[in-house]
Amino acid sequence: MSAASVEGACDPRFAGVRDAFAENFSARGEPGAAVALMVGGKLVCDLWGGHRDAARQTPWARDTLVNFFSVGKAFTALVALRLVERGALDLDAPAHRLWPEFGANGKEGITLRHMLSHQAGLPAIREELPGGAMLDWDRMTAALAAQAPWWPPGTAHGYHVNTYGYLVGELVRRASGRTIGEILRDEIAGPLNADIHIGLPQAEHARCAEFLWPSVLPERPEGALDDVTLMKWNTYWNPPGISGAGWVNEPEWRAAEIPSTNGHGTARGVARLYAALAAGGSIGGVEILSKPMLAAATEEHSFGPDRILERESRFALGFQLPQAERPLGPNAEAFGHFGAGGSLGFCDPVAGVAFGYVTNDMGPRWQNPRNKALLAAIYESLGA
């Protein structure tokens, strides 16, 4: 794919970002994607290219939506943190005060802070659930309420890949009577004019890109599994489809609220939200989080060996923080969240950068050459 095939607009100062994006298609196997960059609150790159379908017949359009997976974890956290600001939620109150059923089997001390920083010990459900169960909110939250922690809460951390959204979302629902997706739409995305969604309305499905999930999926290890192996397997595959395999392009998946995993949006929408965070929590007269709450939300809470990822990970409250192996530019103050396939939303308040990148391909998850090339081009253009 040539640079001429990339659509959209880009400030000449950031021509290197456009070039890197074009090279993702010509040299790095990108099938379809979009990237947006805001600097100092101004949109300086808004680009898209490739195709939104596996057959490569339908071009990606300016308003194409795509499932951005864990990019949505940060948006889920923002909803919860807004309720903390209002006093409807308490970061350090036992969760069972709002969710009585949750207080069973050693979970009496688990707090919202534990959930947001992946320290709750609940990355997986032990009970074997049927395929499609992830679409049933009550079934999933009941299973989590009955589940015993896989490790003593607060003593370690492990990425709550798919359970994070149910845990945080149920506390939000009990505190407010509303869902993560409803509050995101009404209080954050809508006022910001940011095209991001958790629970996509049927009327918007026609804009969705087909996500190109690998056709060959891992097989469950044979025989009885030890607890650690079972925990890791169930994190991704119980219930079958919880990570999106076999479901990601189905209307039921798109319409459901699975806040850890099934957020949809445009790169421009992701960058718009992060532009508010880069500016201290507000932009254009719309405040999504106060400066003190944002400062507290971006402090390191978990760093070190991750019991699920089997490598070091670093989390604030719902945000991923930079690591030497996975930087977000040169400045330590950056924060954001990656998504499966390489999608990424982040901001760098020092440089005034807000960034969104979305793709419909399950590329490398940990070290993704496409988003790395885009990040390098941003800071080279800035002269950093």
Rank of each mutant, 00 (worst) to 15 (best):
V216W: 05
A224T: 13
I196F: 09
E187K: 04
R207W: 04
R220T: 10
R207C: 05
R185L: 14
W233R: 12
P191A: 04
W233A: 00
G190S: 09
L200A: 02
I196V: 15
L200G: 00
H197V: 04
G190H: 04
A209T: 08
N238Q: 05
F211R: 01
V216R: 10
E219G: 06
A209E: 03
S215I: 15
N238H: 04
W237D: 07
H197Y: 10
A203G: 12
H197D: 08
P191Y: 06
D226F: 05
L217E: 08
A209K: 02
K232G: 06
D186L: 13
A209L: 14
V216C: 08
E222H: 08
R207H: 04
Y236W: 11
N193Q: 13
D186W: 00
I198T: 00
P218F: 02
E204L: 15
D227I: 09
L217W: 10
L225N: 01
G199P: 04
A189C: 01
K232W: 03
I188V: 14
A209W: 05
T229Y: 07
P214N: 00
D226I: 06
L192R: 11
D227K: 10
R220Y: 03
N193I: 04
N193G: 14
E219I: 06
P221S: 11
R220V: 07
G199D: 08
E204R: 15
F211H: 05
D195T: 02
A206W: 15
E219Q: 15
S215M: 10
P191R: 02
K232Q: 14
G223V: 10
R185F: 02
G223R: 03
L200C: 02
D226W: 03
N238D: 12
A206H: 14
G190D: 01
S215Y: 07
D186G: 08
V228I: 09
P201E: 09
L200H: 00
T229E: 09
L200I: 15
N193T: 05
E219T: 14
C208P: 01
N193K: 15
I196A: 04
G190Q: 05
I188Q: 03
M231L: 13
P218C: 05
E187W: 06
E187D: 15
E204A: 15
Y236R: 11
D226E: 08
A206T: 08
S215Q: 10
C208K: 06
G190P: 01
L212G: 06
I196Q: 02
P214Y: 00
I188S: 01
L225C: 04
W233D: 06
C208R: 12
L225D: 01
E204V: 13
L200D: 01
E187R: 10
D195M: 07
P218Q: 04
R185Y: 00
W233I: 00
V228A: 14
Y236C: 13
N234A: 13
P218M: 03
W237N: 15
Q202M: 10
A189E: 01
L230F: 07
W237M: 09
H197L: 14
N193M: 13
A194R: 07
W233M: 02
T235Q: 04
L212D: 10
A224I: 11
